[in-house]
């Protein structure tokens, strides 16, 4: 399968990339690792007129220690994130989850920024970002702005990014305690999560992100509240499916997904508090 024809540009700076996006509007698409976009283009589910390849912009490849926050440049690959010493020490949940995305070949190409910007509720890293209570930084013609993770995903493959904005970095708050729980149910190796849950310890209670339980990545707010009010993890986990709207598909009915959310949340919490 070959994508529909398109023009290809490889800007040599972030500024130039933003200029191209501003000029061409919705007919332009950014290309990072290409491991979500190219499969869609091969199926002709996406047919951008212009691909703006930012894949080689070194200025978006970094992991920076800012004390209580670690800033991860959008073009950091899953592979780099999974091996990065600073991340492994300060935010092990992020490197561990990045190291379980897809397979080694996918991790060599896929980027953390692409994962979040793509806006797929079945992706793993957006749920980690939510559990950590993190944010993203976007840059456009009018400068930068910071968007909290829980205001970033708006709908199916829809995010708060404007057409002419580039996701610059993920901002990950260093959790109160490095212990975490990550549970992802797949039927086959390499698959996306049928449902997944990420638990990160907070000063009190825990932050919880859910994978594939609605058209957007979700925070399990009811569980977070119950924990903060002192409920034991097993009891709090019973509320994991509150406010979710899981889809039904070949892998699971909505009811089964709700059940999985409760079970995987309980397991994730048990690991985080073990």
């Amino acid at each position: 399968m070959i994508p529909a024809p398109f023009e290809y540009a490889r800007p040599s700076s972030l500024e130039e990339a933003i200029g191209l996006l501003a000029e061409r509007g919705e007919e332009a698409k950014l290309l990072a690792g290409g491991h979500s976009l190219l499969p869609l283009m091969k199926l002709r589910l996406a047919t951008p007129a212009l691909l703006v390849d930012i894949g080689r912009l070194e200025e978006l490849c970094y992991v920076r220690d800012e004390g209580d926050v670690v800033a991860v440049g959008a073009l950091t690959t899953h592979d780099t994130a999974s091996r990065h010493e600073l991340l492994r020490q300060k935010i092990p949940v992020f490197s561990a989850v990045a190291g379980q995305i897809g397979d080694p070949q996918v991790r060599h190409r896929g980027t953390v920024g692409g994962s979040v910007a793509h806006g797929d509720a079945a992706s793993d890293l957006p749920a980690v970002l939510l559990a950590l209570g993190g944010s993203v930084v976007a840059v456009g013609p009018d400068g930068r702005r910071e968007i909290p993770a829980d205001q970033f995903h708006l709908g199916f493959l829809e995010t708060a990014l404007a057409e002419d904005e580039v996701l610059l970095e993920l901002r990950l708050p260093v959790p109160a305690h490095p212990a975490y729980g990550f549970e992802k149910l797949t039927k086959r190796a390499q698959d996306w999560a049928i449902v997944g849950a990420v638990a990160v310890r907070r000063e009190e209670g825990a932050g919880l992100g859910l994978i594939n339980m609605a058209s957007v990545p979700l925070r399990a707010a009811a569980v977070e509240e119950a924990l903060a009010a002192g409920a034991p993890p097993a009891e709090a986990a019973e509320r994991a499916d509150e406010g979710t709207e899981p889809a039904g598909d070949l892998n699971a009915s909505p009811e089964f997904r709700r059940h999985l959310a409760r079970v995987l949340t309980r397991r994730a919490l048990e690991k985080a508090f073990a």
């Binding site: 290409g34 499969p39 691909l51 894949g55 060599h108």
Partner: peptide
């Protein structure tokens, strides 16, 4: 598979394994 699943198209790009059915030659 032509869908990034089977790995039959794996090559090394600067020494690291990648699936060449899911890269543009331009990349």
């Amino acid at each position: 598979c032509d869908t990034t699943s089977c790995g039959a198209c794996t090559v090394l790009l600067d020494g690291r394994s990648v699936k060449s059915c899911t890269l543009l030659a331009a990349q």
